[in-house]
């Protein structure tokens, strides 16, 4: 991946490695608390996995980083910039792959990539776009097929290609491997590792303990809007992680 040009001049005391930072992030809907004072940081090259049951606040956290919803308290920072105050700047830095990534069905994978990276202000030649798609693992013959014929795994590869084309420093993933077959799921994890090696900071919400342990560098366990546990993946084994997770869920 090409060099990352990051805005650092405007942020005092910002650690250059902190790409994502949640500071006492809170979201309330009337009386219900969806997210309760959650804090964590994701460094360059880290893959931070948020584990938890449905409704634990994983998607809310990602929505807050995307500035799709407004925090009730605390703030979400991307590269030291508050996402609410610098919505468009922070979106230039991030790439997002929702649980079910949908593309324009009438456009080909290539055209979808051109369209979305164009929205991000990037202009590439056809060949460059094809290179991104290949790099993301989409087989050549699919590039010019309409996206309506794509499987979920193929659409997610286009999502990764968009991240590559955007030269994204941050990747936000919302249960990207749910519904993927084991091979596709494995391919996807390999892509994440590749991006991580390039210095991309990844925040991933997932149910998949196994993937989290395999690909993640850090794990946060969430329940009912609170971040209960912060782990470094290399310090736990599968069994301990599962035990810990189940302990919190019960």
């Amino acid at each position: 991946m090409a060099d990352l040009k990051l805005k650092t001049d405007v942020i005092p005391n910002h650690n250059l490695n902190d790409m994502l930072e949640a500071k006492q992030l809170t979201k309330k809907y009337n009386d219900a608390t969806a997210l309760d004072a959650v804090s964590f940081t994701v460094n360059k090259g880290d893959i931070f996995c948020l584990l938890g049951a449905n409704g634990a606040g994983k998607t809310t956290t990602i929505n807050l980083f995307l500035n799709f919803i407004q925090p009730t308290g605390g703030e979400a920072l991307i590269n030291g910039l508050s996402v609410t105050a610098h919505s468009l700047e922070t979106k230039k830095l991030l790439s997002y792959i929702p649980e079910n990534l949908i593309l324009y069905p009438n456009l080909t994978g290539l055209e979808n990539l051109e369209y979305f990276s164009g929205l991000a202000g990037k202009k590439y030649s056809k060949d460059e776009c094809k290179k991104f798609l290949t790099e993301a693992g989409l087989q050549e013959e699919a590039h010019s097929r309409k996206a309506s014929h794509y499987s979920k795994g193929m659409r997610q590869k286009v999502g990764i290609a968009i991240a590559l084309a955007k030269n994204a420093a941050v990747l936000l993933l919302d249960e990207p491997t749910s519904g993927l077959d084991p091979k596709a799921s494995n391919e996807f994890s390999e892509l994440l590792t590749k991006l991580s090696a390039l210095g991309v900071a990844t925040l991933m919400a997932t149910h998949d303990l196994f993937r989290a342990k395999e690909t993640g560098t850090h794990i946060g366990i969430m329940k009912e809007g609170r971040l209960l546990e912060l782990l470094t993946t290399s310090h736990v084994n599968h069994t301990d992680l599962e035990k810990l997770y189940l302990k919190h869920m019960n």
């Binding site: 799709f68 468009l88 997002y96 929702p98 979305f116 991000a120």
Partner: peptide, 18 residues
């Protein structure tokens, strides 16, 4: 409803402008 909007708005564009 198709689920496209989230991907669009993850790009640096304003909803209104788009």
């Amino acid at each position: 409803e198709q689920g496209l909007l989230r991907l669009t708005l993850a790009q640096p564009v304003s909803l209104y402008g788009w």
